[in-house]
Design a protein around this nucleic acid. Structure first.
Lengths: 252, 252
DNA sequence: GTGCTTATCGTCAGGGAGACGACTATGATC
DNA sequence: GATCATAGTCGTCTCCCTGACGATAAGCAC
């Protein structure tokens, strides 16, 4: 049977990005201000159309580079290109999610170390790192007292799914190190877990756990005193990707 | 800015289904024989185009019903419509994955109890349950000695991803019960874990673990002797969806 | 120096899991 | 009917991980 273009309805396919980082002890996501209709002036997740000759992962990596300058780190590739972790999150295709046309969005999740102020790109008037709690609360007020409008489209749902994925994935994988610079201390890694999970962890048990898990951390030999107090050993991420047994997230 | 149809390339969007069940102590997947080009006569995963007015989950549920007669069980809905578990798996959009045109496929994972022989539907000449090992081996031979052609398109990759999702998800959730009939014994549930993981589990420790996890199983009061030997208590799935602590998959 | 902060090591009790013995209750076979 | 094979169920013991928390180390501010 020959190819019949009328046999299927056409869709637009986009990638949207949930880019997470930890700044000032808070889990933050990258948001861009929309420059055009619909939802003009509202905050949204960065994203854009998939081009006709590129793969979904390529499109996500391209959008990430355009918005942040980050080089995506392919999980299946070599381990030590110092870029962000990037993985597919989920796909959203409600017929009503974009009032203009039928759009299917393949959301991706990126985890990055703390970055300088983001540079706006594409059709966005501006871009910023915002605490996820601020972006997700409905009709509340931000830290500076300004009222917060909900994210455009179904991006609140996408962001919530991305945050939940990150929260669960740092339990059983070494992905928390993707939030850290190339060299980091046990305390900095612990503050990542505390920010992502929103809980306080016992520094002594945490230290025992992460240093005792083979392949999680490798000492570089250096020390630092970035945080004040006694100098701490510096580590790099080890080769292990899956943690067995996992880190345990405290109850509620 | 008005809607500009030339601003994005058109895509076809499909849903493909990884439907898993446990038959004769083996993890099996539903495969359909392709009736048209490309890959005519080869085995493939069931699937089809998303219609212009339906959501991705609706499309997957529709395809599942067409292929198996199963009523999809929405995880966010009520717990006891006796259908299969259905969840989104991942999306595959390599530009070369379909030689005819640019197709993005949103794969879904369905877990079902053992079913009678599948009924072929849509454009498939026939359909069957095949052990996943048989479908995934490259250029080997099936149980009956016939040579096995690889699955069409990138469906081997999709199936492998679905199997891995199922293997990891029964660790920390009660999803293994989705492979069981409404009432089942501890031994039947154990054989599900053994088939999906491909390992042997200690019946005594397994019994202690599943009966001791609150909300996992609720006794119905009945007993059965389906498997020979001493009659076993019958259980239904309890309300718990997340198992804490999780089931532990033995090393390698 | 004192005081404060953070890092790191040690100890102890409780719980879960693996290994495995023992007993129970059915059907099959002699 | 006695015996055997098969499954199911209950217990025990040990090891290891975890959480709770004391103690010490090594910087900085005053």
């Amino acid at each position: 049977m020959p190819y019949d273009p009328s046999a299927f309805p056409p869709f637009a396919v986009t990638v949207d990005l949930v880019v997470l980082t930890v700044r000032r002890h808070a889990l933050c996501a990258l948001a861009v201000r929309r420059g055009e209709q619909p939802f003009q002036g509202r905050w949204a997740l960065p994203g854009g159309f998939v081009r006709s000759d590129e793969d979904l992962a390529q499109a996500a990596a391209r959008e990430l580079a355009e918005e942040t300058g980050l080089c995506a780190h392919d999980p299946s590739g070599p381990a030590q290109d110092n870029g962000a972790h990037l993985e597919q999150l989920a796909t959203y295709g409600d017929p009503e999610r974009d009032p203009r046309m039928r759009v299917v969005s393949v959301a991706h999740l990126a985890l990055a170390p703390d970055l300088p102020a983001p540079r706006a790109g594409g059709d966005a008037n501006s871009a910023r790192w915002a605490p996820v709690g601020e972006l997700l609360q409905q009709g509340g007020h931000g830290r500076d007292g300004e009222p917060v409008a909900p994210l455009a489209f179904d991006h609140a749902r996408i962001l919530a799914d991305g945050v939940e994925r990150a929260r669960s994935k740092i339990e059983y994988s070494s992905l928390a190190t993707a939030f850290c610079p190339p060299e980091f201390t046990v305390g900095e890694l612990r503050r990542v877990y505390e920010a992502v999970w929103g809980v306080a962890l016992d520094p002594r048990n945490f230290h025992r756990k992460v240093t005792g898990t083979p392949g999680f951390l490798v000492p570089t030999g250096g020390t630092t005193t970035r945080q004040g107090g006694r100098p701490a050993q510096l580590f790099r991420a080890g080769g292990a990707t899956l943690l067995n047994p996992p880190m345990l997230r405290p109850e509620v």
